[in-house]
Nucleic acid binder design. Structure first.
Lengths: 147, 147
DNA sequence: TATATTTACTACCAATTTACTAGTGATTAA
DNA sequence: TTAATCACTAGTAAATTGGTAGTAAATATA
């Protein structure tokens, strides 16, 4: 059970957009440089995020991407679900995947586990993540403060 | 984020062993037939389960596998962890996987998510799963009860 | 002891998925 | 008009998944 780079990159991408919210569109190229991720790859990952209306794009010179709404109104669950795409186990959503689905107790466990994962991701908003990020990037205290 | 068939099969395998606890060793062949899973594949999946002492094997005629302890003392987390093998995101356990690990807020999120998954699986014992399974296989009520 | 039956171990493999790269076209500010 | 950006499609090498195949080792029973 591995989280794909798509999802990890997708979330990092959204954190950058959150950090720049209100400052106009951000170039994918800049995000790619900042996060050291291939721009082309990011351009694929951002498609579904635009698709569900989490980000808005503008083309042409001085184009770029912006969050469609404040980071406080975006939950990690939305991002992960749409970028990751699939669910833990197919038979949970689609019982016809397995003839045993109706009488399978393990299926109920995977259903529950999927719910817990969703709950956890739903409890975290993008701006909480941004705050955590800011906190982590604070310089440690020094007597001789740098400008 | 998909759960592998290995893990799903591994848990089903353990449920069968739980169902037969106290009745002597169970042939892998019988488990394979009952669960409609390749015997050879199951024989690979069961190796790590034996490795951490969850099941005990005996070779030769009338050999087979038994649970090493009551199902009430076995938690799903143990089964899934050892069969699945990997963690959600490499950098959580091994920060050297990513140079950004120390200042990466998303990493903390994946760490938390991994913890929640572990907690959920740790809250379910194999005999609870067995009880759920039994419940699901109860025949629905009929006036003309079958023998 | 011979034999049938079981697990143990190693090697291999096809199909799928992942994690990209490449190129072309559409759009737009200046 | 042009430079810069996103949009879309196609391809692809490497890794992973989900197995199969075969042989060896162990053991209960006749």
């Amino acid at each position: 059970m591995k989280l794909s780079t798509r999802t990890r990159y997708g979330v990092r991408l959204m954190v950058v957009l959150a950090r720049n919210y209100g400052k106009g569109p951000v170039y994918l190229k800049d995000i790619a440089n900042e996060e050291e991720i291939s721009e082309k790859y990011l351009s694929q990952i951002i498609i579904p995020l635009r698709g569900i209306g989490l980000v808005t794009s503008s083309r042409g010179a001085y184009g770029g991407y912006v969050l469609s709404k404040p980071a406080s109104e975006i939950r990690l669950r939305e991002i992960v679900e749409v970028v990751e795409g699939d669910c833990l186990v197919d038979c949970v959503k689609n019982p016809s995947f397995c003839s045993r689905a109706e009488t399978c107790a393990t299926r109920d466990v995977w259903d529950l586990l999927g719910e817990k994962i969703s709950e956890t991701l739903d409890s975290i908003t993008l701006d909480q993540l941004l705050e955590m990020d800011k906190e982590k990037h604070k310089k440690p205290f020094r007597k001789d403060k740098k400008k």
